[in-house]
Design a protein around this nucleic acid. Sequence first.
DNA 1: TCTTATATTTGACCAATTCCAATATAGAGG
DNA 2: CCTCTATATTGGAATTGGTCAAATATAAGA
Lengths: 147, 147
Amino acid sequence: MTTASTLLREQGLRVTAARVAALDVLDTAAHLSTDEIATAVRERIGSVSVQATYHLLDALTAAGLVHRVDLAGFPARYERRATAHHHLACRGCGHLVDVDCSAEDGPCVHLADRQGFAVERAEVIFWGLCPQCRTDTATGREPAAAP
Amino acid sequence: MTTASTLLREQGLRVTAARVAALDVLDTAAHLSTDEIATAVRERIGSVSVQATYHLLDALTAAGLVHRVDLAGFPARYERRATAHHHLACRGCGHLVDVDCSAEDGPCVHLADRQGFAVERAEVIFWGLCPQCRTDTATGREPAAAP
DNA sequence: TCTTATATTTGACCAATTCCAATATAGAGG
DNA sequence: CCTCTATATTGGAATTGGTCAAATATAAGA
């Protein structure tokens, strides 16, 4: 069984309470912001600073244990899902859901002219309004700050 | 002939020197940041405040005269190109080039499960390293701040 | 030309994130 | 088990990209 501490050790990372807690938290919920992760980690181990959370998430990201989803206009979020997928994002509140790529090797990942770039990945984001923000805008209210 | 002022008038926007200059600037160069646009506008009309530039770019964007390209981790940039296309972005310096969508109605824009969202558009970003940042990283240097 | 709605300016403010030095701690070696 | 050292965490300050609000200036219709 691959517990959080095992995963950390496998990547040559020190096993600290904060890192284990962060991995556990991301196992139960996807697309959490740094702040949400810090709060959830605090509930488990007592306390962590925001800066430590930024730093540990950087470490986990560099080790490939989590992925950072960084959409313009909203704070970065982190996820553990390993399989290839894209995102459906709400422009109103930033709410994020996974979508399976309908064609893993479809036109999305092909590029006729690389123009000298070393292309590493293709990111596909479907932008729209989530159910909540749809009704909010329909009734004249501004989209809610959080989903 | 559709001059900048004609375009503005057509959209019911007032014709001001700053707006005309901004449109002209974006006609000669693509993917400029607010700051770069402010500087270029100043060269043409003497002076504009950064805030005015933010504001006028908002107005031009709302009118559909320019498009805002907003990639995470880098300041927003603006472009006038009208035809559908995607972007190839450098994760090192943020340098941006247009790429034609290889299949306008390919899998990119299809989505099996909308999950209640009102989907408005699909954004495809190819991330990689530009020629300059490739050689910079190859020679051990950090990628340059600007392309 | 006069008027008024709309732009621009100025300056304060904000959130997300990074940087730095000081302190604490995981885990290897004895 | 204890010590040592590299690595994590903390706390505080700084940065960046951008927004907000009030005062002033200006485009364009009457």
